[in-house]
Design a protein around this nucleic acid. Structure first.
Lengths: 192, 192
DNA sequence: GGTTTACCATACGGATGAGTATGGATCGCT
DNA sequence: AGCGATCCATACTCATCCGTATGGTAAACC
């Protein structure tokens, strides 16, 4: 939480800037990532920034790579250790559904796909997750080509849901309704 | 096609600007919508633009509203006249899958959701389409709450697919593979 | 054919935000 | 305590892009 506007006034590291950048991206999108704004938020000025980074582009790049590596261990790592492959997918769905924070950055990057720097990062991340889903579906009993298509469908549904309910604020689905939706997803997407 | 860089040199109307704007948005995103750039592309200067529109924002608004109204008649209108409700959904899926142009603008607007002006438009359009899908699923035999969730799932899959395959260029799915994917969608999403 | 109206060019003002130059402050080490 | 390296502030430059002011040209109507 060392990110808000308290004048903490310890000296900053490159990592501080990257984390603050991710935080800002999650809240206001990539377009809002301006160095003077970030500096104000951190209680310093541009002079500090340009000591740590050569350019604004370099900061964005570093922040994106940090996010990519973090998400790698976090999101997938904890799921792989669910023993029963046939229980794995529903469990995955439910866990993912009840998190919130990890999706914020992903959703923000989703609506920043017109920025050339984020496209390759998102492509890699999405690709890896879909491959993960594909093997999960295979282990759940689907033949190879079906497993791939089901993974595509599932991940597309995830991405689309973020867009429709996070970004657009479509008729703000409430809590029970959301749980019902998740169970509906499980019922129609996961083979018995 | 009166939109490329030929110096056509007939005088322009507001409609010309709006169509050119939509074209530019489809190709380069909302962020690229700058008046001087558009003017160059149309073979005129800013002087022309500010005769037709009070501001850049006004042009974007007009273009979005034009797109919204056009899409209303086009995308939904032709589908409603498929007689058999149980044939309607698969037919809808296949038709939508084999169009291309209408999705370009939608995909471009999807990755411009950080722009306040496009959010309400996209919210309205998406909402209407999902309501359309919901009644289609009801007519196909699903009970009301299931129909709504299935419509959510379906439309989320559509939106996500655009993002993953249009915007990100994930391992560029080829033609036969794409057809197989569509059939897979039909098989898993549409009730027998 | 001359005047009104619609459309456009040119030239400017002003705001914003990236990047640079340079000097000052603070930390770590001896 | 003193000194070098690290970190930051201030004060610029420069490019971009929106919007304005104003005069010019071509179509339209009488």
């Amino acid at each position: 939480m060392n990110v808000s506007s308290k004048p903490e006034r310890t000296r900053l590291s490159a990592e501080d800037w990257e984390l603050a950048a991710l935080h800002l991206i999650a809240e206001q999108g990539v377009g809002a990532l301006a160095v003077e704004a970030l500096a104000r938020q951190l209680g310093v000025t541009k002079g500090s920034f340009y000591w740590h980074f050569r350019t604004r582009e370099a900061l964005l790049q570093a922040a994106l790579e940090r996010w990519e590596q973090y998400g790698e261990r976090e999101v997938l790592g904890q799921i792989e250790q669910i023993a029963d492959p046939r229980k794995r997918l529903p469990e995955l769905f439910r866990r993912v559904a009840h998190e919130l924070q990890p999706h914020r950055v992903y959703a923000a990057l989703l609506k920043a796909l017109d920025h050339p720097q984020v496209v390759p990062v998102m492509a890699r991340v999405s690709q890896r997750r879909m491959e993960f889903l594909t093997t999960a579906y295979r282990e759940a009993g689907l033949p190879a080509p079906e497993a791939l298509n089901r993974a595509r469908l599932t991940y597309a549904a995830y991405v689309g849901f973020l867009q429709l309910n996070f970004t657009l604020g479509l008729p703000r689905i409430n809590h029970e309704e959301f749980d019902a939706y998740v169970e509906h997803m499980i019922a129609t997407l996961i083979p018995v």
